[in-house]
Design a protein around this nucleic acid. Structure first.
Length: 271
DNA sequence: CGGACAACCTGGCGGC
DNA sequence: TGCCGCCAGGTTGTCC
């Protein structure tokens, strides 16, 4: 599910509900979801800690507390939301971790596929490892993008998915960015012209920024923290539109396999 | 450095 | 309706 726009939407939706709250208890039923400490120690250590901020780094949700940092990666099907203790939520069937809060509410982590992770850590970097720049931040300029591209020789879609190259882009927005830039997903990065690099820089940021403004894409599992759907999927140019006409030229959108991922593109616009 | 692939897991969908 | 194979938005580790 979630790429940068979806994770950002979750963070924005939960910030007011969580910042200032103190975690009072923890429950879990799937050990592998928890990282950083053995479950018993995790629960003992987090109890009493106050959430001081709610931010995002790449696709990680980051919650600095007064002693440690609580981090969450939603992977494919993770969902994070706050509910009144005892209240029923549509995603409860797959809840694997719950945190009790000091106002009687609960922070719940639901994840049908169990790929998601909840971390207790001292530093963000200990969890994320090396990550590339945040594509929507001002510091990520076209010059930086060009610089990071230099010397790389890789299928461009694969490079966009590489979190150490640029952080936060996933399969959906990689396809959307390449379409906007009119670049074929199988192009080798070293063959891109100066103009194409400029177009890709602008297109990547625009695709992600639009995704944030539309509050994420609800294709399968992703929902906003309040349970409602995002709108981004209604504005895709190519993702999931194989067999349908290109909005730009009318040609039929194709789907192929690139970097082991389903990849959608217009064979005419992106030749 | 780059590419391919398995692994981690379960649910939903199309086809028969 | 039931069963089967296939697909899925992510990341990590291994092998060539």
């Amino acid at each position: 599910m979630p790429e940068l726009p979806e994770v950002e939407t979750v963070v924005r939706g939960l910030r007011d509900k969580l910042v200032g709250r103190t975690i009072t208890s923890m429950w879990h039923d799937w050990e592998n979801t928890l990282r950083g400490l053995p479950p018993t120690d995790f629960a003992a250590r987090i109890a009493g800690q106050k959430i001081e901020a709610m931010t995002r780094r790449a696709k990680y949700i980051v919650m600095p507390m007064n002693h440690d940092i609580l981090m969450v990666h939603l992977k494919m099907t993770g969902r994070l939301y706050v509910a009144d203790a005892g209240a029923i939520h549509g995603a409860d069937r797959w809840v694997h971790v719950k945190f009790g809060l000091d106002n009687g509410q609960e922070l719940r982590f639901s994840d049908s596929r169990k790929f998601g992770r909840v971390y207790l850590t001292q530093t963000v970097e200990a969890v994320t490892g090396d990550l590339g720049p945040e594509p929507l931040e001002d510091i990520f300029t076209e010059a930086i993008f060009r610089e990071r591209l230099a010397g790389r020789s890789k299928v461009i879609k694969g490079l966009l998915l590489d979190q150490t190259f640029v952080a936060g882009t996933g399969n959906i927005y990689a396809d959307e960015a390449l379409h906007r830039a009119k670049i074929h997903p199988l192009r080798k990065s070293e063959t891109l012209t100066d103009a194409e690099i400029a177009a890709l820089y602008t297109s990547l940021r625009a695709a992600l920024a639009d995704g944030v403004n539309y509050e994420g894409a609800s294709i399968q599992w992703y929902r906003k923290p309040d349970g409602s759907a995002g709108e981004s999927q209604h504005h895709f140019f190519v993702y999931g539109r194989d067999g349908e006409p290109c909005h730009t030229c009318g040609a039929v959108i194709e789907k192929i396999r690139v970097a082991q991922r389903g990849t959608h593109f217009c064979p005419v616009c992106q030749s």
